[in-house]
Design a protein around this nucleic acid. Structure first.
Lengths: 213, 213
DNA sequence: ATAAAAGTAAACTGAAGAGTGTAATTTACG
DNA sequence: CGTAAATTACACTCTTCAGTTTACTTTTAT
C-alpha cells in the first residue's frame, strides 16, 4: 500500500537515491500507515520510529515535530489527488456516454484504497479541528469542481435542464458517495464488487437522464 | 443545547431530584459538550470536572473511568434516536405526498443539531475503532431501516418500479445526506435554510418519481 | 582519504493526564 | 438532632509521550 508515493520519490532523482531519501520515505510510509489505522493522537513517535526502522533522532531531523510530519503527509496526499484532469463537456458525444464516463471517473477515484486511507486520516482529525485541517479540506472538497464545471457547461448548452447545475452535480456525487465512500469510511464496509459498481453507475446515469432531460 | 436530556432525567423521579442526580446530569452534560467540541482524546477529565462544577472525585464516583463515561453518553444518545416510529406505506395516499413526508421526516432528524453533535462524537471515534463503537454504529445505521421498509412495501405493491428497493432507499437517503448531513459533519457547513431545504426536498421527491414510476 | 553530513542507541527532561487516597465538609433523612 | 452517604479540595502516583542530549558510527561527496 502507498507504493505510489515511493514511485514519486524515485522519479525525482532517478539514480541518486541517497540514504537520507530512503529513510525519509520510510518515515513517511510508517507514519501514514500508523495515522491511518490509529489516528493522530493514538500514534506515538516511538511507534513510527519503530515501524520505520529508523532512530528517533532521524525522525526529528527530517520533521521537527509530530505536527510537521502530519502536515507533510496530508499535503502529499492532497496534491496527489488534486492533479486531476478537468472533464470537458462535448455536444458531439451522447449524454449517456459522457455521464457514464463521469461516473466511472468518480468511482475510480473513490475506490482507490489510498483514497479511503487518506480520507480516514484527514477526516478523523478534521471533525474536531475548526481551522487546522479545515482549510486544506475545503480545497479538497472542491475536487468535485471539475464535475461542477461539466454540469455547468451541459446546462448552458441545453443538454441538461436545470437552473442549478451545481446542485445537480452535488446530487450526482452524493449518490455515488452514498454507495462507494461513506459506508467504507465510517463502517469499514467492503467496496461493492464489479457487478454492483456497474449497477450503481447505471442507476446514477439513469437518475440524471430521467430527471433532467 | 442537549436540554432534551435533562428533561428525560427529570421525568424519571419527578420530585425526587436528589443532589446526586443533579451532579450526575451536570457531569453528563459537560462531558457531552466537551467530547463534541474536542473529541474523546483531547478532552481531559479535569476539563469535564471544571465545566461541570463538580469535584474530580465525584466524577469518578459516578463513572469509574473515562471510557465508562463515554459509553454512558453514546448509549444515551443512541437509545434516544432509536425510538423512531416506523413509516407505513399506504396505497390510498398519493405517492408524491408520501415521499414528501418521508423526506421531511428524514430532514427533520438530520437537522436537529443534537443529531450532528451526536454524530461528531461517535463518528470521530469510530473511524479508528474497528470493534469499539462499530457495533453500536451498525445498529444505528439501521435507523434507515424504517425507510427501507417503506420502499419495500411500495415496490411490492407496484407503486414503485424496481427490483432493488433497498438500493432505491439508499439512493434516497444518500441525496438527502449529501446536502444536509455530511457537509455539516465534516466541514461545519451551515445547515441549508428553509427555502433551500424545500428545494432539496422537492428535488429528491422528483428524483424518485421520475426514475421509478 | 578524509571531512562533513546523516544516522544510531539509549538515557533523559518535562508536561500532561488518568486515576487514587484522605481528611474535612455538606446534605439527606429518619 | 445525629448519622450515613455524597461531595470537595488537593496532594499524590504512575504512565505515556513529545522532544532533547550525548557520545558514537556510517555514509557521502569532494
Amino acid at each position: 500500500m502507498f507504493a505510489f508515493l515511493k514511485i514519486n520519490t524515485m522519479k525525482l532523482k532517478d539514480k541518486k537515491l541517497t540514504r537520507s531519501d530512503i529513510k525519509r520515505a520510510s518515515i513517511l510510509d510508517a507514519a501514514m500507515n500508523a495515522f491511518q489505522s490509529k489516528g493522530f493522537n493514538a500514534t506515538s513517535m516511538d511507534d513510527i520510529t519503530l515501524s520505520a526502522a529508523v532512530s528517533k533522532r532521524t525522525v526529528y531531523n527530517h520533521f521537527p515535530s509530530k505536527e510537521t510530519l502530519f502536515n507533510a503527509i496530508t499535503a502529499r496526499m492532497l496534491t496527489l489527488f488534486f492533479t486531476y484532469e478537468p472533464i470537458p463537456f462535448s455536444k458531439d458525444i451522447s449524454l449517456e456516454i459522457q455521464l457514464k464516463n463521469l461516473v466511472e471517473h468518480e468511482i475510480n477515484l473513490l475506490t482507490m484504497d489510498e483514497f479511503i486511507a487518506m480520507a480516514k486520516v484527514i477526516f478523523a482529525e478534521s471533525i474536531h479541528s475548526p481551522q487546522l485541517v479545515q482549510n486544506a479540506m475545503s480545497e479538497f472538497e472542491e475536487k468535485g469542481s471539475p464535475l461542477v464545471h461539466w454540469f455547468e457547461q451541459a446546462a448552458l448548452q441545453g443538454a441538461i435542464k436545470t437552473d442549478h447545475p451545481e446542485r445537480v452535480s452535488m446530487q450526482f456525487v452524493a449518490v455515488i458517495k452514498g454507495f462507494c465512500f461513506w459506508p467504507q469510511l465510517i463502517q469499514n464496509a467492503p467496496m461493492p464488487d464489479e457487478k454492483q459498481l456497474d449497477d450503481i453507475a447505471q442507476m446514477t446515469v439513469q437518475m440524471i437522464l430521467k430527471q433532467y432531460t
